[in-house]
Design a protein around this nucleic acid. Structure first.
Lengths: 142, 142
DNA sequence: TTTTAAGAGCAAACTATTTGTATATGCTTA
DNA sequence: TAAGCATATACAAATAGTTTGCTCTTAAAA
């Protein structure tokens, strides 16, 4: 889906969910939607502060948390202390480069042992994380 | 493997890796090894502060980071801002309860689309996270 | 034992994130 | 389409989680 349509859908959904569509929110959403590197609040703010009149780090944090609470963005599971966000909210997985830390999207949904999962609880969704060395870093090795 | 053997193995490995085996480190390791709830540094400290003479939160943090750096414990991928640790370092997966937040171990290793993963990079390990409602919480529903 | 490099404790620093509050603004409805 | 109001914003200050500097202590090799 192209960005414009996603943005229109975002506006519609946000309003339907009782969230006002402000320039700041729109800017944050657009930024996440067109990047594929799952930025943190700080990174989004760095990108937007010069482009968008009147945006503060606080607003970025509050925006992300509002959007997350209505399911318009998602957190990415990580080992680190910084929260990273994803505008892809349908089930998918990630590849984390152990060298550069970049996170790539994988379309795959993992197959897990249903019996075992159900012995613990009722699953709602599953995601996989693959750790490894990305092609870019692989290429740099001499 | 029983706790005693794991502790002996821990001592041996730690020394071999150049880490001194102190009472504090031993206590931290034992605590993680016998719990299955992947505690945070703070939670470990809460558990140990009354049992172990001379342990500080700082030491728990430093211990975890030393043990992690030599591979004797691992972080658990989460969506939250608190780092959680696991003494199971062999590949396995997790089930996260969306209601109570508890994290359960799954023995499964996910099957992912190898072709797709290799288009991004060279995988080293893969883990799955299943989100759902655990049996305990399911039982509470009236 | 003795020696010494590594670990522990405390306090203070740091980083990521949240909150209080006064002002501004999307958007519903009259 | 203007008005009113609930919701959003910015700033500063607070908080939570984690790390660091420094001094004293100790595990363990010799």
């Amino acid at each position: 889906m192209d960005l414009e349509r996603r943005v229109e859908e975002f506006k519609r959904k946000a309003r339907a969910l009782g969230l006002k569509v402000t320039p700041q929110r729109l800017a944050v959403y657009k930024a996440i939607a067109q990047r594929h590197d799952h930025p943190s609040a700080e990174e989004l703010f760095e990108e937007l502060k010069d482009k968008i009149e009147g945006i503060s780090l606080t607003t970025v944090y509050r925006t992300l948390s509002s959007l997350e609470s209505v399911g318009l963005v998602q957190r990415v599971p990580t080992l680190k202390d910084k929260v990273r966000y994803d505008a892809r909210v349908e089930p998918h997985s990630h590849f984390v480069c152990l060298k550069c830390g970049k996170i790539y999207d994988l379309d795959t949904i993992p197959k897990v042992n249903r019996k075992e999962v159900e012995s613990v609880g009722e699953p709602v969704s599953c995601t996989a994380i693959c750790y490894g060395i990305c092609k870019e870093c692989k290429g740099e090795e001499v």
